[in-house]
Design a protein around this nucleic acid. Structure first.
Length: 121
DNA sequence: TTGCTGACCGACG
DNA sequence: CCGTCGGCCAGCA
């Protein structure tokens, strides 16, 4: 009997990523690894990025532009139509981006493990 | 089933 | 500072 990896009782790994991504407040950003760590798979930041890639197929719009890498760099901007749309969206929310990198990243950083934990508490 | 890729991360030299 | 490598796991040929 094969074991299905990445799937849980009701929600798949991807669905969880989308769910967390939608919880990111306006004007806030987080990282792939932060989401991965929140989901219990710290080393699977790549899967979060892959999920973001597939997020465009989701009915509800996922704020993928609020998800960047550990350094606060817009590594996934190339997947937003090929232009600097990702940067435009972030700046529209008050986030300053210079040379594809978020300024004061720690200031805007939204840690799901921490923030959501405070909500449920 | 195997092998490769990928919007990442950390370690190593 | 820079390039390279291993680990992580889902999807695809």
């Amino acid at each position: 009997m094969s074991v299905k990896r990445g799937e849980n009782d009701d929600v798949s790994f991807f669905a969880r990523v989308y769910e967390v991504a939608r919880l990111i407040p306006f004007g806030r950003v987080t990282s792939y690894s932060a989401i991965a760590e929140y989901l219990g798979s710290k080393g699977s930041a790549r899967m979060v990025g892959w999920a973001m890639n597939q997020s465009h197929f989701e009915k509800h719009r996922v704020p993928a532009h609020r998800v960047v890498n550990r350094q606060g760099m817009l590594t996934g901007k190339h997947h937003f139509g090929g232009s600097n749309l990702m940067q435009q969206l972030l700046e529209n929310e008050g986030v300053v981006v210079v040379n594809d990198k978020i300024q004061n990243f720690e200031k805007y950083f939204w840690d799901p493990k921490k923030e959501i934990g405070m909500l449920i508490r």
